[in-house]
């Protein structure tokens, strides 16, 4: 059974919302991620978002929508979007979509 994303995958550390993304990111699961991320961003007034791709083996353009949407919400308050554990496939998708210009990929 494929692991689904749960509330435990959203964590606020200091000024960052860390989101541990699921194994597969598509439109079907995107709504849950967006809704919960936005709720926490509002509630805890968090400035930055870190997307953790460690478990992720598949992503389509829905993932781009998730990241772009969060970027729009925090960038006006000086927030930034980071990505960690980015493999070759995810990096390719970042490059094709131009997302590499707004997301900073961090080595951990």
């Amino acid at each position: 059974m494929m692991e689904q994303i749960t509330m435990g995958d959203f964590q606020v550390i200091d000024n960052c919302l860390m989101i541990r993304l699921p194994e597969e990111i598509d439109h079907h699961g995107a709504g849950f991620i967006c809704e919960n991320a936005d709720r926490i961003l509002m509630r805890d007034e968090v400035q930055n978002v870190v997307f953790d791709f460690e478990k992720t083996r598949f992503m389509d353009s829905s993932g781009i929508g998730i990241i772009m949407g969060r970027y729009r919400k925090i960038t006006c308050f000086g927030g930034r979007v980071y990505a960690i554990h980015v493999d070759k496939q995810i990096q390719r998708i970042f490059n094709v979509s131009g997302l590499n210009k707004i997301v900073e990929v961090l080595e951990v």
Binding site: H27, A30, C34, D60, S61, S62, I64, G65, I66, M68, G69, I93, V96, S97
Partner: peptide, 15 residues
């Protein structure tokens, strides 16, 4: 409003 990226066809074309 669905917060999709508008990249669907661009991805099909690219990949």
């Amino acid at each position: 409003e669905l917060e999709r990226s508008g990249m669907g066809f661009a991805f099909m074309e690219a990949f």
